[in-house]
Structure formats: C-alpha cells, structure tokens
Design a protein around this nucleic acid. Structure first.
Length: 624
RNA sequence: UGGUCGAUGGUGUAAUCGGUAGCACAGCAGAUUUUGGUUCUGUUAGUCGAGGUUCAAAUCCUCGUCGACCAGCCA
C-alpha cells in the first residue's frame, strides 16, 4: 500500500528528523504527547490580538497543531502583542476560545502552552543593546516621513544620515528612548544592514519605535516597542520553535529573520565560552500559501468595517468568515479541519471554491444529523376526503425514520392531520416538464404520510394560490406504495415532498443565509469589496412551521430538515420562540436543472427561498 | 523598472533526486432511492510557450509569457 503523499512541510520535517537537525526531546521536556529521544518538532500559531480569527487562520492552526500531533511534538499558542495601539484584551479571549474550539489544543498532550511576545520585551531589549554595542544597530533621528523619503526606490539606494553614529552615542540615545525622553515617532532603533539591498526589508529596518501607549499586558512599563521582524524570530528562538511556519508574503522577510538571529549569535558559541555566551536557538522559517476562498474576504480591516457599519450583526454574524460566525452558522470544527486537510499545503497561491467548504459540512452532517420535517414558506393543503377515513379532526401518528444513514438513530412519531402545510415551492399551477412535485391533477407522496392528488386550488383576489385541495389514498399510509391494481400494476409517483401538520406543529423563525458576496472575487470589478456585498445575504422567515418536537430544540442542536438542508438552533432561540439558522442547503439538482431554463416563463425558483448555490442565485453571471 | 517566488484538466493537489500524468471536488451520463439528498457505476477534461539535453522530460538547461509578494515607525 502506498502511503498518503506527504506535503512539502512533512517532507522537510522527515528530512530534519532523519538528520537529527533539531535534536531530541529530553525526558524533562516530555509530557504525554512526546517520547524522550524522538526528534523535536515544535510549532506555534502566533496571532496578533487585533481581530477575530477567520477561516484563513484555521489553515495555519490546523497545519501547525497537526504537525505537532503527527510528529509527537509541541504546539504553542503565542500572542504576538508588539503593537499596543491596535491590540485589545477582547481579542485575546476570543482567540483562545476559537483556537481551542478548532482543536488547537495548546494545553493538551501536544500543547506547549500559551505565550506572550510581551513577556520577552526585557530580553529583546537586552539583545538590542548588544547589537548596538556590536555596531549592528544604531539610533536614527529620522521621523517616519523623512525615512520614507530616504527609502530610495527600485534603482536608488536608501540614505540614512545617522548610521555612522558611534555605538556609545546610539546606546545612550536608545536608553533615553526607553526612558521616555522622546516623543512618539521622533527616533527609531535601526539594524545596520544594507541601504543598497534590492530587498527593501534589508534597507536598515526599524527594530524599535517610540509609542507612548499602554499595553494590555505590560501597562506603561514600555514606551518603545519592537517591530515584527525583530521580535518574531526572537520569540520563536526563546520558545525553542523548530519550524516557524508563516505565509508566503513573509518570504522577503526570511533573510532578515536569519540576519537578526545571526547578529545575536555574533560573539557567541556552542559551549558558551564566547564573549556574549552561548548560541541562541535558530529556528527555520518556512512559508506556505494561505487559504483563500471564492466569494469570501478575509481582510481584518474590511471585516472590522462591516461590523462597525452594521452590514452584519457582529463578528459572530453567521455570514462572517470568522470562526465565531461559522460556528454560529452551524459549521463544525471537524468540517473546517477536513477542508484544511483536503486543500493541501503548498507554496502556490490558490483559491478554493467555497463550495468545497460547504461540502465538508454536508458530508459530516449527512452521517450524524437527525432528520426532521420543516416547512419554511408554508402553503396550506387540505385533504378534502380526509373525513372518509374516520373522524375529520382525527390525528394519525406516522412513523418517521430519524436518519437513513444510521439505523441506530431509530424512528419518531409525527402527527398527520387533514390540514397540512407544504413548501410553497413544491406546488406549481403551471409546472414545467420534469417537475415531480404537486400540480393540479398530479399525485405526490407526502413523506411518511399518504399519497395525495391535487384536485383543486383556492385563490385570493390577486390570483395567488392560497390553498391546495387534495384527495388522499388511504391505502398509502406511511407513504407506502398502494397495493397492485386489478391489472396487477402498481401505481407510481415521481415526487415525495415534506409537510407539517397545520394544527400540530411548532412555529419558528428560520434565518436563511446566502453568501455575503455576490462576486466570486469580491472587489475585482470596482476595487471595492463593498460594491460586491450581496444585498440578499440574509432572509428571515418568521412563518416557518416545524415538527412539534422541535419546539424544544436547544441551542447548538443540529438537524437536517428533509429536502432543505442542515439547520442549527441559534443562540437567540428561546422556549416558545425557536430560532434556526440554515447552515447549508442540501445539494439541489432540481434547482440546477430548472436554472438551465432560467428566463423561460413558468420556471420555478429553486426550493427553499433565494436559491442555494444554484446559478440562479445572486452570483449568477459573476463569472467572467 | 530591482529583487524574491510560483505556473499540471473548470478547481485543488500528486507523480519517492529523468521512466505508463494519478487522486479529489466540480461537470456530464446512467443505476439505486419514501429526501430531485445519500450511495454506486461510467465518462469528459491537463503538464504556460518556444527551443535544447536525453533512448526517454511535468521533472534538467536557455529564452520568453503570465501571476503573486516587497519601498509601514503594521503583522
């Protein structure tokens, strides 16, 4: 049997383990997830606490945690809190919760724990002074604008008037910066690398900037804060990270990552006898392609904006690509992990069809979600000959299968009465070919109920059908086929539709969501994401009727409403005022079929309001 | 325009340092079905281009083409 193909990161780690590059876990380091003597693999997820985590972050979490688990290593959660002006405690709490929910068990068997860049500020500063003394860093008196002007361009080297300042002078200035003697932005500490480098990242990058702002963790202890490049490699080093995995856009920064570690290691050696002591750990930065999805925007700035603007109800709006939003929508952590696994890990930029995410959820829920019947947009159906089979107001309890994929889920009783509700989309007065549902003269099976034939309709003044009149066949109880006729043939029916009793039901509010954007690549058309927001991404259905038992459904429960999709109970749900979210529709080949004839009169809308993923939805024509 | 990186069906991803281009999703066709769901079967479709090396190239070389990223005191 051939093994599963290993992605490039697994191959790198395989090779590292074979060569012993990172050494082995010592007994003291091991918890239940590690074994002494096995090769060290230590990863981390380093979010900046300035926003909520989204599906893009999920890939990084799954990758980093997954590698630690696969190789019996460790996974750290580390807050990269180096910029006090943008970060808030609110985000810290949310991120912890989301990472854990997704399965990034940073405190489990493969967890290294939770860490803070801000806890290293002291050590980072000490190393900064060291670099100044080595002549590898200097204080620059340029402000941001001046530095930008002297940055040079593709063909022109940068200029820096203070780079030849003596180490003593720089050290004095750095200490005064730290002491708070200078205003914000007036000076910086810069690495002395190469003003002529074609890689702008190396043109004497800033290591520290002056920011007089309270930090959520260190308070007002500091007024200088480290920049990403200076801080990140040190954080990794201090935590013993082996594989520092980041996204592609940090490729240009890798030489700087290595430069800083090497700069610290100047004057250090393996046995600690160097002038500055022992070598510090040098992790390896490796870049991979982040997750991008069609019809989706991950930009933190943009997501923050639509929350502020009230375009969505909050960070946990079920239409948001945030982990909280998706969780509320009904996505499971396992389905998100599955997507991350499916799409692979490479160094090629790519865009994943959001439909694959939806498929992951369907696959999982199909196996486990209990089935129920629910009518989102009710149309009354009256059985005119119901009285012939007994009392006209009788209730018959029907036996419905809870999950055809899982026999152990058993069955449940469902109340059937002479007046029912069916889905408005399941009746057409003038049906097109291949419409297998109800129409004048047509017969359908009511699932687990009876076969009914439409004999008439009732209309309102405007000509809208308000009631469908049917006869039922008492010989089809349970939805079973009737006995063979006199000629030995069995009557057939093409369609089976769902229903809910008009008198024995649970009223509910159902929120059906469509994609937040109507363009496959939001912003492509006009340059603004806002122009592609789908104005119909939310529809609230207040007249939905469900099986009685659903009146007591509790927050977090998930069901398949037969023929419609998967739904979960929203946090807004209250006893007597149940609220469901549609997580995802079922695949709907009829919607697709009928959409082929779109434009022709008499073509029905896809089942269940505003169309699922069918080309008839708002995304129609979005493809270039 | 300087640098770095990438390019395999519609999409995503394999092909163990040159040896039969495979898998998944989507699509299409059919079977099963008391969900137009699920499941099953079959099927369409690909190595960015031009040269070169070689018995043999997705893989190596050259030159192009296209795309991504970089000139924050953001990360």
């Amino acid at each position: 049997m051939p093994d599963e193909p290993r992605h490039f990161l697994e191959q790198i780690i395989d090779a590292d383990n074979a060569s012993g590059k990172w050494g082995q876990w010592s007994p003291a380091e091991c918890t239940s997830g590690q074994t002494p003597g096995t090769s060290r693999v230590h990863t981390r997820f380093p979010p900046e606490p300035n926003g909520y985590l989204h599906i893009g972050h999920a890939k990084s979490i799954c990758l980093n945690y997954g590698l630690a688990e696969e190789f019996g290593g460790k996974f750290n959660l580390r807050f990269d809190d180096t910029n006090p002006s943008k970060e808030e405690q609110e985000y810290v709490d949310a991120i912890k919760e989301d990472v854990a929910w997704l399965g990034g068990a940073y405190e489990g068997a493969f967890g290294g724990g939770i860490f803070w860049a801000s806890d290293y500020f002291g050590q980072m500063y000490a190393w900064a002074e060291e670099l100044v003394q080595k002549g590898l860093a200097y204080v620059c008196d340029l402000n941001a604008e001046q530095m930008s002007q002297m940055r040079g361009d593709l063909k022109t080297p940068a200029r820096s008037p203070h780079r030849e300042r003596s180490p003593q002078e720089s050290l004095d200035l750095l200490r005064r910066m730290k002491a708070g003697e200078f205003p914000d932005g007036s000076r910086t500490l810069r690495a002395k690398i190469d003003l002529n480098s074609p890689n702008f990242v190396l043109r004497d990058p800033v290591m520290y900037r002056i920011v007089h702002a309270p930090h959520h963790n260190t308070g007002d202890a500091w007024c200088i804060y480290p920049m990403y490049d200076w801080a990140h490699c040190l954080e990794d080093s201090l935590e013993g990270i082996t594989h520092s995995i980041c996204t592609l856009e940090f490729r240009n920064n890798r030489p700087l990552y290595d430069w800083f570690i090497n700069a610290i290691n100047q004057g250090r050696n393996a046995d600690g006898s160097g002038k500055y002591g022992k070598l510090v750990h040098h992790p390896q930065q490796i870049e991979f392609a982040k997750l991008k999805l069609t019809y989706t925007v991950m930009s933190k700035r943009f997501l923050l904006q639509i929350v502020k603007d009230g375009k969505v109800s909050g960070w946990d709006d079920p239409r948001m690509p945030t982990l909280r939003g998706m969780r509320r929508r009904g996505y499971t952590a396992a389905s998100i992990r599955q997507l991350c696994k499916d799409v692979g890990v490479t160094t090629q930029d790519s865009v994943i069809d959001v439909g694959r995410l939806e498929n992951c959820l369907r696959d999982e829920l199909n196996k486990v979600a209990p089935r129920r019947m629910g009518v989102l947009r009710p149309l009354r159906l009256r059985i005119v000959n119901w009285g012939e089979g007994g009392a006209a107001d009788r209730v018959e309890m029907m036996n419905a299968i809870n999950n055809p994929e899982d026999a152990s889920a058993g069955t449940r009783p469902v109340a059937f009465t002479g007046e029912l509700f069916i889905e408005r989309d399941d009746f057409m007065e003038n049906p097109p070919k291949k419409f297998f549902r109800l129409a004048p003269g047509a017969e359908v099976r009511l699932r687990y109920g009876y076969w009914v034939r439409c004999v008439d309709v009732v209309k309102d003044g405007a000509g809208n059908v308000t009631e469908v009149l049917c006869t039922y066949d008492p010989q089809t109880r349970g939805g079973d086929d009737p006995p063979p006729g006199p000629d030995g043939t069995v009557r057939k029916v093409k369609g089976t539709i769902h229903w809910v009793s008009a008198t024995r039901n649970a009223k509910a509010e159902v929120r059906v969501f469509d994609r937040l954007f109507s363009a496959e690549t939001p912003g492509e058309r006009t340059g603004s994401f806002f122009d592609d927001l789908n104005p119909n991404s939310l529809e609230v259905l207040r007249d939905a009727v469900l099986e009685e038992s659903l009146a007591h459904a509790e927050h977090g429960e998930r069901f398949q409403f037969e023929r419609l999709g998967y739904f979960c109970v929203d946090q807004d749900s209250r006893p007597g005022a149940v609220v469901f979210n549609r997580s995802v529709t079922l695949k709907d080949t009829w919607a697709k079929e009928s959409a082929k004839d779109a434009g022709k009169p008499g073509t029905p809308a896809p089942r269940g309001t505003q169309g699922p993923q069918g080309p008839q939805g708002p995304q129609a024509g979005a493809k270039k």
